[in-house]
């Protein structure tokens, strides 16, 4: 092996950051310009500029489509994608398991269950329209994680890949069945099962965007600050303890943040599978397993991935919408296999 004795900085290179900072807005712009209703490019640009300048755009023809519908939707796609991808990356590091993700571990299903229960039994918080479902979704996501992990520890204290995924899948099915049960009993109130199984980003407005943004900044920020601890966990939990990581505290912190982020995403966008599994995995193949790079790049990659998936969902069957979960699963698995094969061929 030829070695170039260079000293790499651990974080991202400035250039790499700039590249991602450039690609993400480009994709954002593309997704705002293209949609189920054709809006001339010039109009779109003018509308965005006018809206930013704060001038009155209420009279302009496509104003409401671009400003009230498309931009908040693309923004929520970006934020949900970023959050789910970050959660996936965090859990995959924490559990030293590349298959861990909100959907494979049943955390998303648990969050759905929480939201569905909140709706079915009318659990609300006065004056805060989304709070009831959201809090229940977060709570159930966290409970779900606790149950899965304690079951996994009981059966196999080394938390081996197979055990935890097996338990996650079983748990996920179990929770989905309870969700179906609740929906059956409360069928009047909740007819929207595709939302809870496949997700949808329709109808998201700037309030949703703000909530998602806040959640990503707070909980995502905490996850990002634990990059070194996640590196240690990804090498091995025992090793993490040996080098001085407060294993219990870090694990609890990450789990709380992941639950909160997934809970918020699920209550706003439904269950969107595959984002948290595929994007960190792809990112890891590109930048390596070091979480100092992996986590921030996953944020961008997740945003790009879900914005593009949502674009496909919006335009492929126009005027029909595809459930976003269908698109993420399809694109995700194809891209995943492609990168997996080319990654293998390079021999790393």
């Amino acid at each position: 092996m030829a070695q170039i004795p260079h000293k790499r900085k651990e974080g991202l290179y400035v250039l790499e950051y700039l590249a991602f900072l450039a690609v993400t807005p480009a994709v954002f712009f593309l997704c705002v310009c293209v949609g189920s209703v054709k809006v001339p490019l010039g109009d779109t640009v003018r509308l965005i500029l006018d809206a930013i300048r704060g001038s009155d755009i209420s009279g302009i023809k496509f104003a409401s489509i671009i400003v009230s519908v498309r931009i908040p939707r693309v923004l929520s796609a970006a934020l949900v994608g970023a959050s789910l991808s970050l959660c996936g990356a965090g859990m995959q590091g924490l559990l030293k398991n590349p298959l861990a993700d909100g959907s494979t571990l049943g955390v998303s299903s648990a969050a759905s269950l929480g939201a569905v229960i909140a709706i079915a039994f009318g659990i609300t918080v006065p004056f805060l329209p989304f709070a009831g479902t959201m809090i229940m979704a977060i709570l159930f996501a966290f409970l779900g994680l606790l149950i899965i992990l304690s079951l996994a520890y009981k059966l196999d204290s080394s938390l081996s890949t197979n055990t935890i995924i097996l338990i996650g899948v079983i748990f996920s099915m179990f929770v989905s069945s309870i969700t179906s049960l609740v929906i059956t009993f409360a069928s009047d109130k909740i007819k929207h099962i595709t939302f809870w199984t496949m997700g949808s980003l329709q109808g998201n407005n700037y309030t949703h965007v703000l909530i998602l943004c806040g959640a990503l900044v707070i909980f995502g920020g905490v996850i990002l600050l634990h990059a070194r601890e996640l590196n240690a966990f990804a090498v091995g939990e025992d090793n993490a303890r040996n080098i001085g990581v407060n294993v219990r505290r870090v694990r609890l912190t990450i789990l709380i943040c992941v639950s909160a982020l997934i809970g918020v995403c699920v209550s706003i966008g439904g269950t969107i599978a595959f984002v948290g599994l595929v994007t960190p995995h792809m990112t890891r193949i590109i930048v390596g397993p070091n979480h100092k790079k992996l986590l921030p790049v996953s944020v961008f990659a997740g945003a790009i991935f879900l914005m593009l998936s949502d674009l496909a969902a919006r335009i492929l069957l126009n005027p029909l919408e595809l459930p976003i979960g269908v698109v993420t699963s399809m694109i995700g698995s194809v891209v995943f296999i492609y990168i997996f094969i080319t990654g293998r061929r390079k021999g790393k």
Binding site: E10, N97, V235, G288, P289
Partner: peptide, 9 residues
């Protein structure tokens, strides 16, 4: 090892 960390990392 599960992930491809480098020796230096």
């Amino acid at each position: 090892m599960g992930y491809a960390f480098t020796v230096e990392e």
